[in-house]
């Protein structure tokens, strides 16, 4: 299978000399096309920093990130903006919808700011809305929606530009268990049916059990990797293995620590 994303020797340090914090300390991994990969770790482990480096929101101290073989550090100005707007999709923990825009306007926003709204994209929105069960909400404003609906709108926005990879930062973090489950099912379906590549950061073992592979990160470095054994391994079995790893390695949640 084709490699879509390569992270090579990534480092991100904050501070200087004695006060240096190594948020990411030499992370290397690859993501294959169509993979649903999860990154798990406790608070402060560096998982969001890693996601932000991939999203080009923050610049790494050292190392390279390649998307389809292209080094992201070479992207500047318009090309960088285009990468953020079209080649990746970003799903936020707190939805980050613009409160004074309707659902439809919010979903169209990434296309609008890159002047890509056309008849085809309008069709794409209708399809996405129906798929994510938000078709009836298109003229509503975010304040009129529930948390689950907001996150599905946010997902539609992240996918409207048909990104090469979808980055999700704790997407279930602000949802109750019912809505979290519904969202994860949708993401899994998208991954399986559309062959979309998803990279998700989470510390929720339940959400992580929908992934095909999980990287465990601690103190800025990968210390373990877990793969779904075979296609038919149930979600429950995989979940138990995740919990097992977390318990064995003595972390994964603040409560355990």
């Amino acid at each position: 299978m084709e490699k879509i994303l390569e992270v090579q020797g990534l480092e991100k340090f904050y501070g200087k000399k004695e006060n240096i914090t190594r948020a990411i300390d030499g992370v290397t991994f690859q993501v294959l096309n169509g993979e649903f990969i999860g990154i798990m770790g406790s608070s402060g482990s560096g998982k969001t920093t890693l996601l932000n480096c991939i999203a080009t929101i923050t610049r790494p101290t050292a190392g390279r990130i390649l998307l389809k073989g292209e080094d992201l550090s070479t992207y500047k100005g318009k090309k960088l903006a285009e990468y953020r707007g079209s080649r990746i999709g970003y799903l936020f923990q707190n939805f980050e919808l613009i409160e004074n825009m309707t659902v439809k306007e919010n979903i169209l926003l990434p296309l609008a700011i890159h002047n890509q709204v056309n008849q085809e994209s309008k069709k794409q929105i209708v399809k996405l809305a129906q798929y994510l069960e938000i078709a009836d909400l298109m003229e509503k404003f975010p304040e009129e929606l529930s948390g689950g609906q907001k996150q599905r709108v946010s997902a539609a926005r992240a996918m409207v530009s048909k990104p090469e990879i979808l980055l999700a930062d704790e997407p279930t973090g602000a949802l109750d268990s019912k809505n979290a489950k519904a969202l994860m099912k949708k993401l899994q379906e998208i991954n399986e049916k559309e062959k979309s590549t998803i990279l998700m950061v989470t510390h929720d073992a339940n959400a992580a059990s929908y992934c095909s592979r999980i990287l465990f990160i601690q103190d800025g470095a990968i210390f373990h990797e877990l793969r779904r054994k075979h296609k038919d391994e149930s979600k429950q079995e995989f979940y138990e293995r995740i919990i097992g790893v977390m318990a064995t390695l003595g972390g994964g949640s603040e409560n355990v620590l």
Partner: peptide
């Protein structure tokens, strides 16, 4: 504005 930046606004 931050959301716009995330969505690729320059």
């Amino acid at each position: 504005y931050q959301t716009l930046i995330f969505l690729g606004g320059y």
